[in-house]
Write a protein that binds this DNA or RNA. Structure first.
Lengths: 312, 312
DNA sequence: TATAGCCGTTGCCGAAACGGCAGCAACCCG
DNA sequence: CGGGTTGCTGCCGTTTCGGCAACGGCTATA
């Protein structure tokens, strides 16, 4: 089912690999063929699509415009294929997800496992990244669904849903703070603290609040792995910060306590956004998973807000 | 700039013309070439795209799916072209509008004239149709922007804006009703009435209300032209029904009076929707006009509601 | 019932496009 | 200064495409 001119596919491969010869290897054709198609494209558009650097190709402005068009075409082709397939009952395809780390503990594996139980022939590709990398991967067409901190998102992405979760302190069961219902940031900083590095978005949530405090002691530990921070907190090394989403299993085992943060009487929110490329209609199997994801996150949001009502 | 395989373009032409030979004439190629491309497509998709009737071709279910994909591709190609053109400062293209008749008197000509004054190289195609035909033309990709009564719209269309205008009685200045501020339907029916035929959406707005009345006299005149109804009302032939949008000039000349309808104390609304194909990003010049259209209709809605406040 | 006018499809053949191979100059890095 | 890479370009066989003419199927009209 390859009814689009080879130039389209070749251009797409060259953009992704950043090199004509590399693209040719991926496509299993001679590099000369790829080179010629690119040149032909540039002639028809009437403007160069790539800047030829010594070590590969970079998109020009016009090239980026064409890349956007080609991405729309190829992604819509995928959707068409899945539409035709689902007509004959065969539901198969690959859902590609880019996601931040806080969902790896329970949300994502639970959902994927459940979905695979129902639709065995739908496979998944997941990639864990930082929030801004998630959005970037989505923009570049390397993922279908993106889950990230709800920052300002580029206009070519669409925010499907926005769920807010309370940020809280994570401490071991034996920790002195563990018997409190809520904690303030100042109370936490009296103890050794496990801080996130700037590449994690928790850093950007907490930093403004910490900066307001009169004194800011050195954190005991800084890390860029949520998993590591969680495990450290469970061993009583210090106080970590997370939403409850990220500590599912250890919380169920009662090894970890989640204490909602109280910032001058109001909660500290961590906004989670679900994103999709705006100029695109998703294949049926992807759309189906997307809706389950939104429903599940909504459910967790609801449950949390019942467990820790907003009025502290 | 034809970097999509000929099969795509041929398929599109065949779908629009409903015949291979007709498509070949439009495309300036031999009919055999078109036939072969269609057969090749069907082979690659693995399923027939058209049903061969004695007098032409009709899309199958799979064919409709491919038609949707092809439409997305070609419309997005248009947008890409306009993006490239606007990069070099040249803003040109054609905005294609499908619209119901009530806007032909002032809204549409005013807007188009103003826009052409600013962007001389943007041309327009307008087609006046009934509401459901407007939506259908939009779905088939025969228009970029659709303006129609806000019925339930198919899921492949997106409602960009929804503006509501008061439905009113239109009478000549000398008409006995002309000195009233508002009128009820019963009051109107005491006089000769110019009714819309079912193909106009006013009919479907008024019919339910008329049916509620104890007696429903025969209308004096039935017509399917808003222009004609307006001119008849101006000549004192009877009472017609319209929104104020459709009677601009004659109203300015004070030949016609607009009397908002009062239905048991509440106004009768006529909802106007602006529509666009959902799976599509508009070219810059089209988007620009669309925004002016939405702004202008919003402005008219606001002005009307000030002239005839909701509380009667 | 015969016929003229559509329709889509198919063989045949020349023309155009495509892809593979090998070799070119330009560049980076050690 | 070589060894590696990059993209580009003749040359040539293969594939694809399009035009022409003809065929069978169908409809409407005489």
């Amino acid at each position: 089912m390859r009814f689009h001119s080879p130039a389209i596919q070749y251009f797409h491969a060259v953009r992704r690999t950043g090199s004509i010869r590399a693209a040719a290897r991926v496509l299993n054709v001679a590099s000369s063929a790829v080179s010629r198609q690119i040149l032909k494209l540039e002639q028809e558009v009437g403007s160069p699509l790539f800047e030829r650097n010594a070590r590969g190709l970079t998109l020009t402005t016009v090239g980026e415009m064409l890349a956007r068009h080609v991405m729309n075409v190829l992604q819509d082709l995928d959707r068409f294929r899945s539409d035709v397939a689902s007509l004959s009952g065969a539901w198969h395809g690959t859902v590609s997800i880019a996601c931040i780390e806080s969902l790896t503990e329970s949300v994502l594996p639970d959902l994927i496992a459940a979905h695979r139980g129902r639709a065995r022939r739908v496979s998944f590709t997941t990639e864990i990244k930082g929030s801004s990398d998630v959005l970037e991967a989505l923009s570049r067409g390397e993922a279908d669904i993106g889950i990230a901190m709800a920052l300002r998102h580029p206009p070519d992405l669409r925010q499907v849903a926005l769920k807010r979760f309370r940020l809280g302190a994570i401490v071991a069961r034996e920790h002195p703070l563990a018997r409190r219902k809520t904690v303030t940031l100042a109370q936490c900083l009296a103890f050794p603290v496990i801080n996130a590095l700037p590449e994690l978005s928790i850093y950007h949530l907490l930093q403004p609040l910490i900066a307001q405090l009169p004194e800011t002691p050195e954190p005991a530990i800084q890390a860029n792995s949520i998993d590591l921070m969680r495990e450290l907190a469970a061993r009583g090394v210090g106080v970590a910060f997370q939403t409850q989403l990220g500590i599912g299993r250890l919380s169920r085992d009662s090894q970890l306590m989640f204490l909602p943060l109280d910032n001058a009487g109001s909660p500290v929110w961590s906004d989670l956004g679900i994103y999709v490329r705006a100029e695109r209609t998703l294949p049926a199997y992807t759309e189906s998973f997307l809706q389950e994801l939104v429903r599940e996150l909504g459910e967790r949001e609801r449950r949390e807000n019942m467990a820790y009502p907003q009025v502290t």
